[in-house]
């Protein structure tokens, strides 16, 4: 038998006191919160999305022949000149992208761990849940991370490139990569993953940043689908063109 208290222990409180202890800083509150981490993911995702849009536009220059494509590749290194030194602008972009990737990945990792912990027991009765794009966010993200590593080793550093990597001749390098079956497979699978990831990610980022509401929902979904389609089609058109001999 336990005995309940016979007298009240609490101080007189005609008004509720809030926050007597020192409060953590806003940065800390932001990073500790799931909503804050999701905001980091949304912003870094949007940065990467912007980059992808620029990237696909550059890629499509391949259809205008090696001269224009290689010149575009060269310009990437001279952009910002003469204010900036050779390649500086490119490095600034790279550092920014790296920060976005790290922010995105760290938040995703921490949130995923938390999410898995929050739901330790699965239901015995299984049924399909949510849309395909939603369910593949985690695996899609990991696939894309691995792809980026391969992609850089293949076409930026040339480390794993086959057929004689030559800096400054991106056109030939691209044609080499897409002349192998596995190069095509890896690339096309990754680009499909990009599509799915962007499809849910863009709409989701809008919600996280508070831009979503009932009236805007259809427009946001249409934009997400449009972006996903344009990016995937744009990227995939290059290996398809190489395979079909349109680009050689």
């Amino acid at each position: 038998m336990t005995l309940g208290p016979s007298v009240g222990l609490m101080a007189l409180a005609t008004r509720t006191e809030r926050r007597t202890e020192p409060q953590p800083s806003m940065t800390r509150i932001f990073w500790r919160s799931t909503v804050g981490k999701k905001t980091v993911m949304a912003l870094s995702g949007l940065i990467m999305l912007g980059y992808l849009v620029a990237h696909v536009m550059g890629n499509l220059k391949i259809f205008f022949g090696p001269g224009e494509f290689n010149a575009y590749g060269h310009w990437l290194r001279t952009m910002g000149a003469p204010v900036l030194h050779h390649s500086w602008a490119l490095w600034i972009v790279r550092v920014g992208l790296l920060a976005a990737v790290i922010g995105h990945a760290v938040s995703a990792y921490q949130l995923s761990r938390r999410d898995i912990k929050a739901r330790p027991t699965a239901y015995v009765h299984k049924r399909p849940r949510a849309s395909y794009a939603t369910r593949t966010m985690r695996w899609g993200g990991i696939i894309l991370a691995l792809f980026i590593v391969w992609h850089i080793l293949d076409l930026t550093t040339g480390t794993v490139h086959v057929g004689g990597f030559e800096e400054g001749r991106p056109y030939q390098n691209v044609v080499d990569t897409f002349s192998t079956w596995y190069g095509n497979v890896i690339y096309i699978v990754a680009m499909l993953a990009v599509g799915l990831h962007v499809r849910h990610g863009f709409w989701s980022a809008a919600q996280t940043l508070g831009a979503g509401n009932a009236r805007r929902d259809r427009a946001l979904k249409a934009m997400a689908n449009g972006l996903a389609l344009v990016l995937t089609a744009g990227f995939v058109s290059v290996p398809v063109a190489v395979m079909t001999g349109v680009v050689s």
């Binding site: 981490k37 919600q207 509401n213």
Partner: peptide
């Protein structure tokens, strides 16, 4: 857990609390 906007919550809600409610809170 955190929200990944799967929308399962709003589908299951017997009172029809709409999914955009989450965006509004964000």
């Amino acid at each position: 857990g955190g929200c990944t906007l799967t929308g399962e919550c709003a589908t299951a809600c017997p009172k029809g609390i709409p999914l955009p409610s989450i965006a509004a809170m964000n």
